[in-house]
Simulated assay, not measured.
Amino acid sequence: MSTETAGRVALVTGGSGGIGAAVVRRLAADGYSVGVHYARNSAKAQSIVADVAAAGGQGLAVGGDVGNEADMAAAFEAVEAAFGGIDVVVNTAGIMIIAPIAELNLADLDRMHHTNIRGTFVVSQQAARRVRPGGAVINFSTTVRRTQYPGYGAYVASKAAVEGMTLILARELRGRDVTVNAVAPGPTATALFLDGKDEDTVRRLAEAPPLQRLGQPGDIAETVAFLAGPGRWVNGQVLYANGGLA
């Protein structure tokens, strides 16, 4: 446990699975009390809270739609009531639907807009109002914004919007001693990434980075832990955690 981060409080949206769950466990290991947000899977969130408690930490499961202001205000308030405030907000919640731009169902575009853009905005808005001095807001983009693989147009558009609002929020919080950054993972072995891909596609993507493997959720969680804790001089940036892919 880090003496610099012990006693701090984090809220992780999308904390019930994939990268979010790894972030929860990593921050809890550093001494954070952690709000574990879920959209639908309450049982999974409660299981992660139980894991945190078994390791000697404190966690709280909070539900809601990240794109719904009332839901997110309630989630923030629940974490503040349980632990006394919020120092770090990590917004991992997101959905990815892949299709060529000419073929994408516009209902899927709206779903990604709601979660990835509106959701990030709503959560960032709550964070801007509530995070204590010395804190951090960490949003999520994607390496595909630079690699520009076909089929990812709508997803990348949503994450480009996330980057834009993240970098502006960093400037808007001047004088608050709160950093705002985004993490842009490369191919990472999560259900979100693996869903719908055949073995050849996964193997090709795993071999693309110079380190010649897929990222693991723990790799991304280490980047988040740096930004949440010791990385105080990193602000208004997008950090690419991708093994050197691009």
Rank of each mutant, 00 (worst) to 15 (best):
A55S: 14
A55D: 11
Q58G: 04
L60M: 10
A61Y: 10
A61M: 01
A61K: 03
V62F: 10
V62G: 08
G63F: 07
G63N: 05
G64V: 00
G64Q: 05
D65I: 02
D65K: 01
D71N: 15
A73T: 04
A75H: 07
F76Y: 11
E77Y: 04
A78D: 12
A81F: 09
F83H: 00
F83Q: 01
F83G: 02
G84P: 09
G84H: 14
G85Q: 00
G85R: 05
I86Q: 02
D87W: 04
V88N: 08
N91M: 11
A93F: 00
I95Y: 00
I97E: 08
I98C: 04
P100K: 08
I101N: 02
I101W: 02
A102P: 03
L104G: 01
A107Y: 05
D108R: 09
L109M: 07
D110T: 15
D110G: 00
H113D: 03
H114S: 14
H114G: 02
H114K: 08
I117Q: 11
G119T: 07
G119K: 03
V123E: 01
V123I: 04
V123G: 02
S124D: 08
S124V: 02
Q125N: 14
Q126F: 12
Q126W: 14
A127S: 12
R129C: 03
R130M: 04
R130F: 13
R132E: 13
R132F: 09
G134C: 08
V137R: 07
V137A: 03
V137P: 02
I138H: 11
I138W: 10
I138F: 10
F140I: 07
F140P: 10
S141D: 13
T147C: 03
P150T: 11
G151K: 06
Y152I: 08
G153S: 15
Y155S: 11
V156E: 13
A157Q: 12
K159A: 13
V162W: 09
E163H: 09
M165A: 08
M165V: 10
L167P: 05
L169W: 08
L169G: 13
R171G: 06
E172G: 14
L173F: 02
D177C: 13
T179D: 09
T179N: 05
N181G: 10
A182C: 13
V183S: 08
P185M: 04
P187F: 09
T188Q: 00
A189N: 14
A189T: 09
T190F: 12
T190L: 06
A191S: 14
